[in-house]
Nucleic acid binder design. Sequence first.
DNA 1: ATGGCCTGCAACGCAGGA
Length: 254
Amino acid sequence: MKLAAWNVNSLNVRLPHLLDWLKSAAPDVVCLQETKLEDVKFPLQAIQDAGYNAVFDGQKTYNGVAILSKSRAEDVVKGIPGYADEQKRVIAATVDGVRVVCAYVPNGQAVDSDKYRYKLEWLGALTGYLRGALADHPSLALLGDYNIAPEDRDVHDPAAWAGQVLCSAPERAAFAALLALGLTDSFRQFEQPAGTFSWWDYRMNAFRRKMGLRIDHILLSAPLAARCTAAGVDAEPRTWERPSDHAPVVATLN
DNA sequence: ATGGCCTGCAACGCAGGA
């Protein structure tokens, strides 16, 4: 079972890339972030024609999440129960016995901004939600754009990014709190090439210059981590014409 | 050189991303 997460930065623009990637990578489940589409505009037919089911929760202009799966998605839950949020950032469903939680963590803009405080509050709400979800669903995966580089080795220039948003100590502590629920960073279960990232700024030729961050993650509960045989980043779509600034991240379960 | 790019908006310069 191949799980993936991809911030597509507008599903409207990226639909051709998504369809190409579904064909070449053939994931069983893909969690999308930043679809930026109202539900009535979701390209359901094209995705079904590609052999996938889809559940989604979107809005105009910003945010928006979806879970695409070859098998049916059941018990769909949108948002973080009990946490009122205008922004469409979370959707969960059960696929082939795996509880899949798709999350688009707030960016945070700058340390000490209102958006940063919202990010930390939001992460606290997500952590509380997952504590209960893990009790109900021992086989759980949390996939998406976390907007957190967990360690300095996930950053092309740790000195330049030290203390900045995406790398600050409170954000890294929030990531550690997710791990403390019993989740494992699938990427770190395996040897990885140095300088493996999942996001590169559109500016400065950042991708060509390997100036990236690893901020998209697949965290697995213990039963799923035990089944995980491979994990990594598929940077190829980032090389395509008019790409998303994020690349898909992937984890394979036996 | 502290900004450089991309997306969506009833836009024609802005907000937001990271």
